[in-house]
Design a binder for these strands. Structure first.
Lengths: 211, 211
DNA sequence: GTTTAATTTAAACGACTGTTTAATTTTTAT
DNA sequence: ATAAAAATTAAACAGTCGTTTAAATTAAAC
């Protein structure tokens, strides 16, 4: 069996990409190995052969999708920008990262809630903690400079940013009808403009409002 | 087979309650009829006998859990209160409603995304539209009185309120570790105080902030 | 008390699940 | 060309799933 720890060969990459799309469309549990195999035009035994199990396939997918992106936000907090500008850039970074990864984050956040604390959750916790550290640094910088209010519960900023996005994203059908976004492109465009703007506006208001 | 349309007998109610708890804990797909039957101390055939199918059991559950709550928010918007106070009361109403229903709303919002537009989604859409109408009325009242800013995307207010809550609620384990909320009671208490307060603060800032 | 209806049961159904086996083909190295 | 390793295959495995059946029990109606 090929190594899961570092790199993936072409066959593995194809399986990962097919699995990601199917997981995103139908969820982890609703997607069978047979469906993945059929879509990727491989034998059903190949998933076990290359990854060990369906569970480990998901773990590999999480690893594959997060390893390049883990330090993006950290780098941002180093840049020489005003705190509010940093936050403003952080939000589309967050959203696009999630939005471009076909829904793997949705699965991580909303499907693997009942399971035990195994590898894939450790990876997620790792990312979350690093992101929180970065955000905390930015906000505390803003507070020191007297720009941001000081009675903010910093760990609840991320739930507001991600939660707003996810709630919109997960209830796609409802919002497509409500906002008359008939095509996929119109929906994506609305996220990139109005939704991100709304979240930026929300966080900005929360941070710099003074009573 | 007993009628699903209106009322439920004692046996049905017990099944519904057991199913709700199990669905909330493990999700709809991960909960088997056999588990429900064992927990409710009934034969596995009784679910089909009383509800027709597992799918229809969920529909019945949604109906059962939403029929009493459908007009709560509408009533609020009629009361003689300042718009900001209405919003402030609306938020815990929202959160508690969801939080007291053992997670059925989580399933509705985050598990039934891939399925077709059948009955249970129609019920959900109905509730959502009524809630949106109520919120729109309140916000527009505040805008007319010159209290609220006018460049707000009203349909995105609900995603921020519910999304923040859900994201916190769904990532229970992570936040329990992060915020040192060891017991269930401590977690619930944090929601009722800090989380709700954070959401209220967020929405208030968003609504009344002026550049 | 007998008959009819409603409820409950154990067992089986067929379909699907993830995974493994053992044989076969293809690739690689010598 | 030959031997060893890797990749691929079809088939079967042991479970679980939701649902149905047909018989047994209980309740209700007359």
């Amino acid at each position: 069996m090929a190594s899961v720890a570092n790199d993936f060969n072409e066959k593995q990459l194809e399986i990962l990409q097919v699995a990601e799309t199917l997981f995103a469309e139908n969820g982890f549990e609703r997607t069978s190995i047979r469906t993945i195999a059929k879509e990727a035009k491989i034998n059903i035994a190949m998933v076990s052969y290359y990854f060990g199990s369906k569970e480990k396939l998901l773990e590999a997918l999480v690893f594959y999708r997060t390893k390049d992106l883990r330090f993006e936000i950290e780098n941002l907090s180093i840049e020489e920008l005003e705190p509010m500008e940093k936050i403003n850039r952080l939000i589309p970074l967050y959203i696009n990262r999630i939005n471009c990864n076909k829904g793997i984050y949705r699965i991580l956040h909303y499907e693997i809630t009942g399971s035990k604390n195994d590898l894939k959750l450790q990876i997620l916790d790792d990312i979350r903690l690093k992101n929180l550290t970065a955000i905390t640094a930015i906000i505390e910088e803003g507070q020191r400079k007297g720009i941001f209010r000081k009675d903010i519960i910093i760990p609840l900023i991320t739930p507001t940013i991600l939660g707003t996005f996810f709630h919109f994203y997960m209830n796609k059908h409802y919002f497509q009808n409500l906002l008359d976004l008939k095509t996929e492109i119109a929906f994506e465009e609305y996220i990139k403009t109005n939704l991100i703007q709304h979240i930026q506006q929300t966080i900005k208001s929360l941070l710099i409002y003074e009573n």
